[in-house]
């Protein structure tokens, strides 16, 4: 793992999102305990930890997806560009346009590939003409490295693509709304190794424009794609720092136990 950190270019950007004292309750369960984290712009941040540690839950706080779950309650402060996203004046709809999300299982809508990508721009009114929309769709598909495979079948259903293509379609769909932050919840867990490699490559590309936060259960993946890593355990943020450091010289003994495979 040491050799991996050598080639890593760690250009720390400005802080895009900041979380302070975030607590999440599911009914009576205390799922997240006082998490502080800074997410930097144009950086891939990985959340790792054993399953059930709260990393996905925390991710869903960042674009208020937890609002759609009745029993979930969020405390603490999360800001995007210095604005509190849990401020009562904030409309989660507007927030999610800025903080896009890609899910564990590829979930293309049962519509054509074109309509899948055009969905976000349409609801947010990002285009004024058909030509503009076409452009956005093409741009997004190119960014998701799907254009070459999909350009001849834009009107075919998105559900007809292979698993890896579906996930890249979902990424294209998220990119099309012009987000500033892209959240990815174990985006490769349902994919085969080749598709995983393609998506990981894509994530690295995306870093040039967006701040990417990725939840993964695979430490290798975190090491491969991220610049910053946060280790979660039992709802707590145990350690957060440069990926190279976390994997080679963690401060906390729990982190070390996890990356060496003793807990998890």
């Amino acid at each position: 793992m040491n050799d991996m950190s050598v080639s890593r270019d760690v250009d720390t950007g400005e802080i895009k999102m900041r979380a302070r004292g975030v607590e999440v309750f599911y009914g009576d369960t205390h799922a997240i305990k006082s998490v502080d984290v800074d997410i930097e712009d144009k950086t891939v941040t990985a959340f790792i930890g054993p399953s059930g540690c709260g990393k996905s839950t925390f991710l869903r706080c960042l674009n208020r997806m937890n609002d759609t779950i009745d029993v979930a309650r969020v405390k603490g402060e999360i800001t995007l560009d210095g604005e509190d996203i849990y401020d009562p004046k904030v409309d989660p709809v507007q927030l999610r346009a800025k903080v896009g999300m890609v899910f564990q299982k590829p979930n293309p809508f049962p519509k054509s590939i074109y309509d899948n990508v055009a969905y976000g721009p349409r609801i947010h009114g990002l285009s004024t003409s058909k030509g503009e929309l076409d452009e956005i769709v093409e741009k997004s598909l190119r960014r998701a490295a799907l254009w070459d495979e999909a350009k001849d079948r834009l009107q075919e259903p998105g559900t007809g693509l292979s698993g890896g293509q579906q996930q890249r379609l979902c990424i294209a769909r998220a990119v099309a709304t012009n987000p500033e932050v892209l959240l990815m919840d174990e985006p490769c867990s349902a994919l085969d190794p080749i598709a995983t490699a393609q998506v990981e490559e894509l994530i690295d590309e995306l870093r040039t424009r967006y701040s990417v936060v990725i939840v993964t259960h695979s430490m290798q993946q975190a090491a491969r794609v991220s610049q910053k890593t946060a280790f979660f355990h039992l709802g707590e943020l145990v350690e957060y720092g440069e990926t190279g450091k976390i994997f080679t010289n963690p401060d906390d003994s729990r982190t070390e136990s996890y990356i060496t495979g003793r807990i998890g």
Binding site: K89, Q94, L126, E132, E180
Partner: peptide
């Protein structure tokens, strides 16, 4: 070039 760029609008104001 038609490339979408991130919008810089405040979350606190509803458009």
């Amino acid at each position: 070039g038609g490339a979408p760029e991130p919008r810089r609008t405040s979350l606190l104001e509803l458009d």
